[in-house]
Design a binder for these strands. Structure first.
Lengths: 160, 160
DNA sequence: GAAAGCCTACTCGGATACTTCTTGTCCGAGTTCATCAGG
DNA sequence: CCTGATGAACTCGGACAAGAAGTATCCGAGTAGGCTTTC
């Protein structure tokens, strides 16, 4: 069980974008910031755009920017946008193949194992839903007060 | 992000084994119970054996049985045994490639995004660690009081 | 000199290969039990 | 009749393919701005 690597990239990129409000940043520049493969990061940003987390602009002077307030973008939003909304544990209702099975029963909901696994994933998602990009940015700011300015100047000095 | 399908099979099989204490059940019979592919279920049971969750006996009259009290087997134990102990979210420390990075810093622990993701997974694992095979069996028993007897008789009547 | 049209350069977007992991299968090592030969 | 060795059948165990998903890349559709041409 492993999550898409793009989730990490997307989260860091969103934090960076939160420090460049109203500015369209190209995928090339976002990738150069962390030495990431441009085309692949672009793919992740497209997924964020489809989910309505960032807005994209084509052409020269184009790029990506946050589509809404960072306080309204949770880590779960990003995970769902890139990694999909499906649960990691997939109940295939094997009880249906067992003895004494009720063909009309919804074992996804009634099977105790399925319930326990889904409950655990629910707490996981709740944790992620409670953390926003703004929260992360605030925590970074508390530890490194000059991080936003450094980020902005680094983007300004990028040659690509 | 998807979890190994074998996790579901292993959990159901462990519950069944908890109702057949002291009896060695072959992978073939456990697979027949839910119409699962025998060889593949065998592979999962091997993983459980390596993790010390079940004990295996070779040869005729051989098979698998729980290696310890079902109250001491958590759902997390099974997930770890089959799906591995690694976190789903892998922090690759992309901050190291960014500007102003400290080469000696351990960003897995200090990066706020990494911390948030790991904290969420921790709650997930805690939930799973709190649920045991005995708990599941008890919940099933409460809803279907005759489940253990039905399971035992079905295993007894299996032709394979 | 000003305005309109064209052209170039640059961006995102989706379609396309490649690698890794999950899924599924097979045959060998080891063990138990039944059988058979010998005392 | 009893004891021991032998062989066959059955089990787990790890090594071996097939398929799906994640990873990485490329080229086309569309746009903004600058340049040229014309009035």
């Amino acid at each position: 069980m492993k999550m898409n690597e793009g989730v990490e990239w997307a989260m860091h990129s969103c934090v960076n974008l939160s420090w460049l409000p109203g500015e369209a940043v190209t995928a090339k520049r976002l990738a150069a910031f962390y030495n990431l493969p441009t085309a692949y990061l672009n793919k992740q940003l497209q997924a964020l755009a489809r989910a309505g987390i960032v807005s994209s602009i084509s052409g020269p002077k184009g790029g990506f920017q946050l589509a809404r307030d960072p306080r309204k973008i949770s880590l779960l939003d990003i995970v769902v946008a890139i990694d999909g909304a499906d649960d990691a544990f997939r109940c295939t209702e094997i009880l249906k193949a067992g003895p004494g099975a009720n063909p009309k029963a919804d074992y996804v909901k009634t099977c105790q194992i399925s319930r326990a696994m889904r409950a655990a994933e629910l707490t996981y998602r709740r944790e992620l839903a409670a953390q926003t990009i703004a929260d992360i940015a605030e925590q970074v700011l508390a530890e490194h007060p000059d991080a936003p300015d450094n980020t902005r100047s680094h983007f300004a000095n990028l040659t690509v």
